[in-house]
Design a protein around this nucleic acid. Structure first.
Lengths: 231, 231
DNA sequence: CGGATCGTTGACAGGTATCAATGCTGGTGG
DNA sequence: CCACCAGCATTGATACCTGTCAACGATCCG
């Protein structure tokens, strides 16, 4: 992990409390006073596209809140290929299993340049003792994981490759704040949907030819109506 | 939901505290005193194989702890087929999303005759205020859901049908307390693995012919070594 | 015994993986 | 500035796998 610590947010009350994404983040419900209980610094990390945030084998000492960017959770398979089991967006909490004394279940890798806050697991555990406000947010995070898993299992593993790709594109479009969204590499699309990169490429190319989809560099725009029809 | 209330466990301290599966269950960490805070009755429910515990559309007012038996979580697809997104065993908590004010994500259906404790969501929320012991158990449940989802996505959606069936049989064997385990119908195997019942049947029949697998009624025994080799 | 339900199996068509060749693009160094 | 290269996307040919549809068999139950 080439973690570059950009900034030590040691005076947390000053940095976290007014943070513009705090409303989406783990500390959303904390009051100003709660921040006084924070002892360990929260550290700001920036990853370039392709860089790893943590690996399965790392000590599970931190959880991470995404401030901006996009992260994939990757599981490597015995045959050398890999499966992407989740995508994490702004406000999402990465590595939450570390709070249950579990090892990380997957490898976390940035898909785009990504800004992240690194929070010590010890710190969260302490906060949980002194302040009840965290529990609600944590429960919401767990709930989100369950509901994401539900989407993955019901949208991305069922039906023909064509339908799965269509479902994925709709998901990506709906999770983007802008009209256009980041379109993963064909290999990553394959790893998301349990199909091969060649099949993913064929299907996406077909969508382009039909003009259901327009690609500019790494970004894409879709005709949502057409895709809802396909699904 | 043909819920037959077998027994109202209103004197909870008498029934839950000495329960032989409490160590696996939601109230594992509660002390004798904590039970005094319980107001609403906990109700015992028994389902026959095939009966529904709840549907997606039911009001999410209860969570359920499985005392014995086996439950599937089912998501119905637009084309009339369905997908099984989790299996729940003794000690598992069903419908946990109700605690986050979410609707039930799936339909819960008994695969075998199943004994269940029905617990009011209101009750849990009250307990969470008065006693801190529940949080740890709840966090463990959420963690289990995440780890189950991880298994589903990495073992049951990847690779050839043959490998997926092998992975599923190993999973079923490892989650059984006995040598033999409940083998779902071919249609359910298909719904677990996103394959058709015909394909599931072919593969299971082949395993039988090779004597990797022996079936007696609804139960099966496998040669684990052979299956680990296949996976 | 008859009927319903589920499992098994065959034939075939269609979808997807595999392997490989070609095209495209962005970055690097001369 | 351009040529080259590396990495990725696209596409074709082919074989294999899986879905589909249907027939038949086994089992259970009334």
């Amino acid at each position: 992990m080439k973690t570059r610590i950009i900034e030590h947010i040691s005076c947390v009350a000053e940095k976290c409390y007014p943070c513009h994404i705090r409303q989406f983040a783990l500390f959303a419900d904390l009051q100003r006073d709660d921040f006084k209980h924070l002892n360990l610094p929260i550290e700001s990390v920036e990853l370039l596209a392709g860089e790893s945030l943590y690996q399965e084998t790392d000590e599970p000492d931190f959880v991470y809140t995404i401030r901006s960017g996009l992260v994939k959770l990757v599981h490597y398979l015995p045959n050398g290929s890999y499966k992407i089991t989740r995508l994490l967006y702004k406000g999402d909490l990465v590595g939450i299993e570390a709070l249950s004394d579990s090892n990380y279940l997957q490898n976390a890798i940035a898909l785009q340049n990504t800004a992240i806050c690194r929070i010590s697991v010890e710190e969260i555990k302490c906060l949980n003792h002194t302040s009840p406000h965290l529990y609600k947010q944590l429960a919401m995070r767990w709930q989100k994981i369950q509901s994401d898993a539900h989407i993955w299992l019901t949208q991305f593993t069922v039906g023909s490759s064509r339908k799965r790709v269509a479902n994925l594109l709709l998901y990506l479009a709906e999770n983007s704040e802008e009209e256009s969204f980041y379109l993963p590499s064909r290999e990553d699309v394959g790893a998301l949907l349990s199909i091969t990169a060649a099949t993913a490429s064929r299907i996406i190319a077909e969508f382009k030819r039909h003009d259901f989809l327009r690609i500019k560099g790494e970004n894409a725009v879709i005709n949502k109506a057409k895709f809802e029809q396909i699904c």
